[in-house]
Amino acid sequence: MAADEVITRAVLALPEEREARRYLQECSFDDRLVGVIMKASGTLPVDIYSIEQVLGFFAYDNSDVQGDPDAVIQGRRLDVAYLAPARLSRWIREIVGDAALADAIDAEAAWIEDPNIYPPRMRLMRELVATRVLQYYDVVGIRFAADGVQADDDAKLRKEQ
């Protein structure tokens, strides 16, 4: 069973280049976001210093395999990358500075049946953040390969910028 298609309703206006560059910056240690990868073998707190790292964090999640016999029997795994939605939107608003994205994360909760059920909520958050980060890349001029791997030159370019 593939994960349900994630449809977000928010339409975010492209940020200015200057804004996008600011949103992509890493934050300080004190301003970091802490998520936790919930695994049956142990809870794993993860420090998150940038909006891109939110996506790196969510990439560990496979909570949508639940209920899929093949995935569970063969993969035998259920890892939940847990970020309390309210904390994520607050961090994006206050530290990353992207109020539009934070508003969208809050607003999307109204469109799902039960915002307290985590897996669909996480997929919405992940989709929104991913869409937004790709907007940043587009505005700033960072190429993003289809396999999700940024070219080293691009990463270097971004640092220099």
Binding site: I48, E52, Q53, L55
Partner: peptide, 19 residues
């Protein structure tokens, strides 16, 4: 399996570097 494959995750892993 398990943490032998996850040990670096806590330090903040960027999107697009699963390998």
């Amino acid at each position: 399996s398990c943490f032998d494959s996850w040990y670096q995750a806590q330090a903040g892993v960027k999107w697009g570097n699963p390998a």
